[in-house]
């Protein structure tokens, strides 16, 4: 594998919940500093696959996985790897904005502190400002940093969560339907932000909204349930986004993106 080109790679990845094989035999590579979208119908394992990338699935007691996920060439499921460190380097933003019930400032500063920040107050101020600027939120909140994060609008809260994620300088940001609870304007702001963020980060986004995947991503993975008896989700097609949305190779992808699925 070309480590410079690909930041994440799954090899024969299977994910089980108990005996149920939820995600089957996934092999695909995530390009560094690109936005990769995972699309597919409900229940096909998109979020399960996304959560595998930073070992969030193992917080579900019955979940287990087989195969490998290489992050910069290293298997993140290797026993020697600390899952907390994996989650620091591969951050996550969720569907529903979930700021801490603390001030805007503390939402950012807290993550830094628990990740070992030991500098001065002014250094901390700088890092908070940097993160909020990076999430295109600074100008809107700079005069009310002591107000609760929950006082912000939905779109602002989501950008606060993105600021919180980037404050600890991860390499990858996983986003699970980050704009599905937002209005169209807030959605476009998040999408613009994603394009800025990819200069410094790699983004993997799960979305139900195909137009969003088409607008924002560079690569698209199409997932679908396959198999006769036990239906498991797998990646049926992976390609450049422009090709997936103009001339997909797999008939099932074609049917899904043209709305003829189901």
């Amino acid at each position: 594998m070309d480590n410079n080109h690909y930041i994440l790679e799954t090899q024969n990845l299977n994910i089980y919940y108990g005996n149920f094989l939820a995600v089957k035999d996934v092999n695909f590579k995530v390009h560094r500093h690109q936005i990769t979208a995972i699309i597919g119908p409900s229940g096909c394992g998109k979020s399960t696959l996304l959560r595998a990338f930073n070992r969030m699935n193992e917080l579900v007691p019955s979940a287990r996985s087989e195969g490998k996920i290489l992050f910069n060439g290293e298997d993140i499921y290797d026993p020697s790897i600390d899952p907390v460190e994996v989650r620091r380097r591969i951050g996550m933003v969720f569907q529903k904005p979930n700021p801490f019930p603390k001030s805007i400032y503390e939402n950012i500063a807290w993550g830094l502190k628990i990740n070992g920040f030991r500098g001065s107050k002014s250094e901390l101020d700088d890092l908070v400002e940097q993160a909020l600027r990076g999430a295109a939120l600074w100008d809107e909140v700079k005069d009310k940093l002591d107000q609760s994060g929950l006082s912000l609008s939905g779109g602002q809260q989501q950008r606060l969560c993105i600021a919180r994620a980037i404050a600890i300088k991860p390499e990858v940001i996983l986003m699970d339907e980050p704009a599905s609870a937002l209005d169209p304007i807030a959605t476009l702001k998040i999408e613009d932000l994603m394009r800025e963020l990819k200069e410094n980060y790699t983004i993997v986004i799960v979305t139900h909204n195909m137009q969003e995947a088409a607008r924002v991503s560079d690569y698209t993975a199409m997932m679908m349930l396959t198999g006769n008896e036990e239906r498991s989700g797998t990646v049926i097609e992976f390609d450049r986004t422009d090709l997936i949305f103009t001339r997909p190779k797999d008939k099932r992808t074609e049917d899904y993106i043209t709305g003829r699925f189901g």
């Binding site: 103009t246 001339r247 043209t258 709305g259």
Partner: peptide, 9 residues
């Protein structure tokens, strides 16, 4: 209708 793929082509 935001056509995609074959419809768009």
């Amino acid at each position: 209708q935001q056509p995609m793929a074959r419809d768009l082509r």
